[in-house]
Design a protein around this nucleic acid. Structure first.
Length: 289
DNA sequence: ACCCAGGAGCTGC
DNA sequence: GCAGCTCATGGG
């Protein structure tokens, strides 16, 4: 390993800790990437990110510099891993050959700063089951309702209350009646079934974690209400299988318009999921840049 | 009013 | 097997 592309300093009088990095890190692009549903934009340009039973406030305060609401110890323990800071996304971008694939090069340049967060597998599974057939505001609303209804009440270091994502037990104990308040529509039975499958051991999330992208997707697809698209998203965002390549309507458009001869999945392994994120964002954001 | 978003479950080949 | 339907649901 080379030396990390990031470092921490102590309190600057305003923030508890300050992160400095020269790798790709754009909070707005991550928040809008569709991979996470519990990031909230704050009035001062920062973001509040909820992960398990913790909440981080992070705000850009200069080039490659970010103010943090946590201390160094918590950042090293939790958030450096969550933000996947030990992976160089610049290096992943630089593998793209701009002559061979000018479109991907353009997309990656326009969307550089996206990272694949290391989110909780169970939370990601339920979130993407909820996501099917819906837009992001609707997904966020349902997830918040589910957390309020079944998650543990928590308070962050600044005294702000929030709810943790409910465990499989907590979801199961809600039952169909409790889930009805979460505006899940017909997906309620899928969410309940996922909780049962995890608790029954019908699916072993640790085994999914130990598998490669294709095997992980296959296992996830055995769950009721989980098809290939949702399984690929869960593999990529919940199990950090960077080679998983979710195909949704936007990516279908990309493949049809930009790669009529076929997309070189083999050549881009094991980073297909990262490149998918650039292309997805580039098309969805209207191919600016 | 209308369009958008994935998966299940069916039909017909 | 697999292509092509229909259904269920909530938000913009």
């Amino acid at each position: 390993m080379t030396s990390p592309a990031w470092s921490l300093s102590g309190s600057d009088g305003v923030w508890h800790s300050v992160l400095t990095t020269d790798d790709d890190l754009d909070l707005a692009l991550i928040a809008e990437s569709g991979q996470c549903f519990r990031w909230e934009e704050l009035p001062d340009g920062g973001y509040g990110a909820i992960h398990k039973a913790r909440r981080l406030t992070i705000e850009p305060i200069g080039p490659g510099t970010f103010g943090l609401s946590c201390d160094n110890a918590e950042f090293l323990d939790i958030w450096a891993d969550y933000l996947d800071l030990n992976e160089s996304y610049r290096a992943i971008r630089e593998r793209i050959d701009a002559h061979a694939d000018p479109f991907l090069a353009r997309a990656a340049e326009a969307e550089k700063g996206i990272r694949i967060l290391r989110q909780d597998p169970w939370e990601t599974l339920v979130s993407f089951i909820i996501s099917q057939n819906r837009n992001i505001p609707a997904i966020k609303r349902s997830i918040e309702l589910l957390c309020e209804k079944a998650g543990r009440a928590c308070v962050d270091s600044q005294g702000q209350p929030f709810f943790a994502f409910p465990s499989p037990e907590e979801v199961l104990s809600l039952g169909m009646e409790g889930l009805a308040d979460c505006k899940l529509g017909y997906r309620d039975k899928y969410v309940l079934a996922a909780a049962r499958s995890v608790l029954d051991g019908e699916i072993d999330l640790n085994e999914v974690a130990d598998s490669d992208a294709d095997a992980a997707i296959e296992m996830l697809m055995t769950l009721y209400g989980v098809g290939k698209k949702v399984a690929s998203c869960v593999a990529l965002f919940g199990f950090h299988k960077l080679d998983a390549f979710p195909v949704d309507v936007w990516v279908k458009r990309v493949l049809k318009s930009e790669y009529p001869q076929g997309y070189p999945l083999k050549a881009y392994s094991p980073y297909n999921g990262v490149y998918q994120q650039y292309m997805f964002a580039f098309y969805r954001n209207g191919q600016e840049g």
